[in-house]
């Protein structure tokens, strides 16, 4: 897979390296600025935001205070529960739906569901937010529950995920394999979970990465569903924190870093898989 293109002379290669380094520095600059300022007092940040160490020295107190004011562990827990449950649910319901859609494409219900899913991908969230709040808030009164958000997250991502599983089952799973299982006495349900599902692992990984990142970072839908402070996810808590403490810039820096840290740490370990998953997801979608 590793490509080696012969790109001109050593000079153009050196030039390329310089341009890449400049771009790289520009890409990480905002993060670096947050990191150097998180260890300064409010006064030091205001007087010299670019200095590596403030005149009051290297301080750590911004972290515990921001953690307490943001209720970080609770918020982090909320985000984790919601992201994990939504991702797993999305994968389970979408791969099952994709299976019946691919294998029984002559059935009207399958064709109708699949076309509706494809067509729905152009609907922007803004069109659905008022009716969602009206139905689930006004009519059923089920806002402010984590489960509501999990089900809504799943409902929104199910069409894209089904589309991706559809492609995978259609091209990668030979029908003969399933037929052999039927002959051996498997029911359809068993065949799917014992034969087909294990072969879908690469697509499961792709869908998991794309959806988990989307759920983790989503702001608008969670902010409409979860309005109680104890249910906040990381993006909502960051927004609320900024609204309350925007003048206390040292705390803001700590809160922003805390908001970014979990996913950055994860990226450190899963970088290869994340890049691969995002690429294959984007190219197929």
């Amino acid at each position: 897979m590793e490509e080696k293109r012969t790109a001109g002379s050593g000079l153009s290669r050196a030039l390329m390296m310089i341009v890449l380094i400049i771009f790289f520095l520009a890409f990480v600059l905002p993060f670096v600025l947050v990191i150097i300022n998180v260890f300064k007092t409010k006064g030091d940040i205001n007087s010299a935001p670019l200095a590596l160490i403030g005149s009051h020295g290297f301080i750590l107190s911004n972290f515990p205070e921001a953690m307490k004011k943001m209720d970080f562990w609770r918020v982090f827990g909320n985000s984790t529960i919601i992201t994990t449950c939504s991702t797993i649910l999305t994968i389970l319901v979408s791969c099952m739906a994709a299976f019946v859609i691919v294998r029984n494409n002559k059935w009207k219900a399958c064709a109708l569901l699949f076309s509706a899913m494809i067509a729905s991908m152009v609907i922007p969230f803004q069109v659905l937010m008022v009716p969602l709040v009206s139905v689930y808030g006004g009519l059923f009164g089920v806002l402010n529950h984590r489960l509501t958000l999990i089900l809504l997250h799943t409902g929104f991502s199910v069409s894209m995920a089904t589309f991706m599983f559809h492609g995978a089952i259609h091209t990668n799973i030979p029908l003969e394999l399933e037929e052999a299982a039927y002959i051996d006495g498997c029911t359809r349900w068993q065949t799917f979970w014992k034969i087909v599902f294990p072969l879908l692992k690469p697509t499961v990984a792709t869908v998991a990465i794309i959806d988990a990142m989307a759920f983790w970072n989503d702001y608008l839908l969670p902010s409409l569903v979860l309005q109680k402070k104890e249910l906040y996810t990381i993006p909502i808590a960051t927004q609320a924190f900024y609204g309350t403490y925007s003048t206390d810039i040292g705390l803001v820096m700590a809160a922003l870093l805390l908001a970014m840290l979990p996913i950055l740490i994860l990226y450190l370990f899963l970088q290869k898989y994340i890049v691969k998953g995002v690429t294959s997801g984007a190219v197929k979608g």
């Binding site: 019946v100 659905l128 089900l151 199910v158 089904t162």
Partner: peptide, 24 residues
């Protein structure tokens, strides 16, 4: 068969996308 495999996905999809869209 349809309900067993595509039922959950259909309900969630209808409930979050199609019904709100029409209601909207």
């Amino acid at each position: 068969q349809f309900l067993m495999f595509a039922g959950p996905a259909s309900i969630l999809f209808l409930g979050t996308v199609i019904i709100p869209f029409i209601y909207g």
